[in-house]
Measured scan of single mutants.
Amino acid sequence: MQVTWGNVTVTFSNPEEAKKYAEKVARKLGGQVELHNGQFRIK
């Protein structure tokens, strides 16, 4: 499962870890987490 924002992509084998990481990054950037085609995207 991947977490992407800007031109950065981070890949996780565990979807739960990916979700936690995406939420943490979104909080830092003041963005929203979207699940899109099996990727968490931060907008």
Rank of each mutant, 00 (worst) to 15 (best):
R27D: 07
K24Y: 14
E34C: 15
A26T: 02
L35Q: 09
F40M: 08
F40R: 02
T9C: 14
W5C: 15
W5T: 04
V25F: 04
I42F: 02
E34S: 08
G31M: 09
F12T: 00
G38M: 04
E17K: 09
G6Q: 06
K24M: 14
Q32P: 04
G38T: 03
T4D: 02
L35D: 06
Q39P: 00
E34V: 12
A18N: 00
K24D: 12
P15E: 10
G31D: 03
V8F: 11
N7T: 10
A26D: 00
V25R: 02
A22L: 05
G6E: 07
R27H: 10
A26G: 04
A18Y: 01
G31W: 09
H36A: 09
K19A: 09
W5S: 03
M1K: 08
G31V: 08
Y21Q: 02
T9K: 05
R41C: 15
E23I: 10
T11H: 12
H36M: 12
I42Q: 01
V33E: 01
F12S: 00
N14V: 06
L29V: 13
R41H: 14
V10F: 08
E34P: 00
W5P: 01
Q39W: 04
E16F: 10
E23A: 08
E34R: 05
G30S: 06
V3S: 00
F40T: 03
H36E: 12
T4H: 12
E17T: 11
A22D: 00
P15N: 08
P15W: 14
V25N: 01
N37E: 11
F40A: 04
W5N: 03
R27T: 07
Q32H: 13
V10S: 03
L35C: 12
G31L: 10
A26K: 02
K24P: 00
R27A: 13
I42T: 01
Q2G: 07
M1Y: 15
S13P: 12
K43M: 13
K43D: 06
K24V: 10
F12Y: 03
A18C: 06
N7L: 06
G38R: 04
A26E: 01
I42P: 01
G30I: 03
G6L: 09
I42W: 02
N37Y: 04
L35H: 07
M1G: 06
N7G: 10
V8I: 14
K43F: 13
G6C: 14
A18L: 03
K43V: 15
T4M: 11
T4I: 15
K43W: 08
W5F: 11
E23H: 09
K19T: 05
Q39F: 06
T4L: 12
A22R: 01
V8H: 12
V10G: 01
G31I: 06
T9I: 11
N7F: 08
Q2A: 10
N37V: 03
P15M: 14
E34Y: 10
E34D: 07
L35G: 04
A22N: 00
K24R: 12
V3Q: 00
G31K: 04
T11Q: 11
N37R: 04
A18I: 01
L29F: 11
G38L: 03
Q39Y: 07
V8Q: 07
K19Q: 11
A26I: 03
T11G: 07
K20D: 11
A22M: 04
L35F: 14
E23R: 06
E17C: 15
K28L: 15
S13M: 10
M1H: 14
R41T: 13
K19S: 07
N7S: 09
G38F: 04
K24L: 13
V25Q: 05
G38I: 02
G31E: 05
Q39A: 12
L29R: 03
K43A: 11
K20S: 10
A22Y: 02
E17M: 12
E34N: 04
I42V: 11
T9Q: 04
N14F: 05
V3E: 00
L29M: 12
G30D: 06
V3W: 01
Y21R: 00
V33P: 03
G30E: 04
Q39T: 08
V10Y: 09
T11M: 11
V33M: 06
K19F: 13
H36T: 10
T9M: 06
E34M: 07
K20H: 10
S13L: 09
Q2R: 11
A18D: 00
Q2T: 15
N37M: 05
Q2K: 14
T11F: 13
V25P: 00
G31Y: 06
S13H: 11
F40K: 02
E16W: 09
F40C: 04
Q32W: 14
H36I: 15
G30M: 06
Y21C: 13
